[in-house]
């Protein structure tokens, strides 16, 4: 695309953004303190009109933020100053809009009644109900094992995928390179979906409980580990591969003797760290019905039994801290 066209389109976008935020957010919410009227596509027309006028003005005067971004404006001119001010206004309006959209309400936060409620909550959290200790420990164990199983099942799959999506091993011939590209797309897509979302999908699929939680973590772990593994493989020293190849070894022997020894330690360390992450994730996933300590937490929370919630939070904090400490120690020892 031509630079002039890019500049113009950018200015149209800035003009439109300013018009819509000034009118719908600043005018209605800040000045009038009401809600803005319901959105209809027809409402867009005047904003676009303003945007076009704005961008034409920018084009004619040369006072254009688009121009400053794409090419440049000369320092010290009023056009340059103007473009900088527009940028500041854009940032400011984005902040105001975020504030309005998030429904920030500081006054309510420090309201007398609310403060009392929060006080009651925190004091009961600090007085955990030890009667459910055994039940909570069992749920925590379920979570840890769930995390372990998801990591353990994912491990061999990621291991294989790691090799198949390592550029340096796959770029050799067109078929393997095509496979590499396909696998990259699939794992990138899978990884971009959060485990929480996978958990929702699997709870619909196989009903709620630890099993769908395990599946959700497993899917995400496969994609994440495959990525980390393949990056590690791409990073290895090619020299030993060349040397082993030169002895007349088969490709699988080259991988086993020249690639694997270079990657086992980093692989182990990634895997342990992933288990650690998965224990935390398993807790969160429990909140949407993935079983274990998370599910228990959300049940007591819905019944407003804060002393029980207090105990569960305590156990989670303890285990997460312990896992974190242990996995860091193990990874250090492996180095």
């Amino acid at each position: 695309m031509n630079d002039k066209v890019k500049i113009y389109l950018l200015d149209v976008f800035f003009g439109w953004y300013l018009a819509i935020t000034f009118h719908r957010v600043f005018y209605y919410h800040v000045l009038l303190s009401t809600d803005s009227p319901d959105f209809t596509w027809n409402l867009m027309l005047p904003y676009v009109g303003v945007a076009i006028i704005f961008s034409v003005m920018c084009l004619l005067t040369g006072a254009s933020l688009g121009k400053k971004i794409i090419s440049s404006t000369q320092k010290g001119t009023w056009q340059n100053e103007f473009a900088i001010n527009i940028a500041w206004i854009l940032i400011l309006m984005t902040f105001v809009t975020s504030w309005v959209v998030t429904k920030v309400n500081i006054i309510q936060m420090f309201d007398h009644e609310r403060l009392n409620a929060a006080g009651r909550l925190f004091s009961s959290l600090l007085q955990p109900n030890w009667n459910i200790l055994q039940k909570a420990i069992m749920a925590m164990i379920e979570t840890i094992y769930l995390a372990f199983l998801s990591t353990a099942i994912a491990l061999p799959v990621s291991f294989l995928l790691g090799f198949l999506s390592a550029r340096n091993l796959m770029k050799g011939n067109p078929i393997s390179f095509a496979l590499y590209n396909i696998l990259r797309i699939i794992t990138n897509f899978t990884r971009s979906i959060e485990p929480l979302v996978w958990a929702v999908i699997f709870t619909v699929w196989v009903s709620s409980g630890p099993f769908p939680g395990m599946l959700a973590l497993m899917i995400h772990t496969i994609a994440s580990l495959a990525k980390q593994y393949s990056e590690q493989i791409e990073d290895i020293d090619a020299g030993p591969m060349e040397a082993i190849e030169a002895t007349g070894a088969r490709p699988i022997q080259v991988i086993w003797f020249a690639v694997v020894p270079q990657i086992v330690i980093p692989f182990l360390s990634f895997t342990i760290y992933r288990w650690d992450i998965n224990v935390r994730m398993a807790t969160i996933i429990g909140l949407v019905g993935g079983g274990g300590i998370g599910s228990m937490l959300i049940q007591y929370q819905m019944l407003s039994q804060w002393n029980e919630v207090g105990l569960i939070v305590l156990i989670i904090a303890l285990v997460v801290w312990l896992m974190d400490y242990l996995s860091a120690k193990i990874r250090e020892a492996l180095r």
Partner: peptide, 26 residues
């Protein structure tokens, strides 16, 4: 271009890879 993490002996043995069965070598 030795395999740094392996023993000297295993490195020398890797010169024999072309003459040994895949499974036995793995």
């Amino acid at each position: 271009n030795l395999i740094k993490r392996m023993s000297v002996m295993d490195n020398v043995l890797s010169g024999h890879l072309g003459s040994i069965g895949t499974f036995a070598s793995l």
